[in-house]
Design a protein around this nucleic acid. Structure first.
Length: 118
DNA sequence: AAGATGACTAACT
DNA sequence: AAGTTAGCCATCT
């Protein structure tokens, strides 16, 4: 594993604002590896505690927690997310609303402009 | 060296 | 909406 990638991942995750989430794919892309989604999970696991990363703000592209439910970390991540105001309905998080870039998209894409966009 | 694995994804059924 | 398939690629057996 390229150590510079790990570091890039940590930097990206560290920059996720409270109350928002990013998908593994997005983090990978922002860290410089467009095809490195699967690498992100590893990087998070290797992160030193001293960085105190908001690792829980990283979820999969389906808006769901990717940790196996039989792991204690699953509930842990769920709690942390809900504690910062993120709503998890039926196990899914609305990326349009809580996704970091999703917020920007929403601001730029007003429903009333729908017919003008194409 | 070769095959299995996984905190992933997009595309398809 | 939920399950399957095929790519992905560093790590681990």
């Amino acid at each position: 594993m390229d150590s510079s990638f790990k570091k890039a991942v940590w930097d990206v995750v560290e920059g996720i604002p409270r109350g928002f989430v990013l998908t593994y794919g997005q983090v990978a892309a922002l860290a410089g590896l467009p095809n490195g989604a699967r690498r992100v999970s590893g990087a998070l696991g290797l992160a030193p505690k001293s960085r105190k990363l908001p690792w829980h703000r990283v979820i999969n592209a389906q808006g769901k927690i990717s940790i196996p439910q039989d792991s204690p970390w699953y509930q842990r991540q769920k709690d942390l997310l809900q504690d910062e105001g993120i709503v998890i309905l039926k196990g899914k998080i609305d990326l349009q609303r809580f996704g970091w870039s999703g917020v920007v998209d929403h601001l730029m894409w007003s429903p009333t402009d729908e017919e003008h966009s194409a």
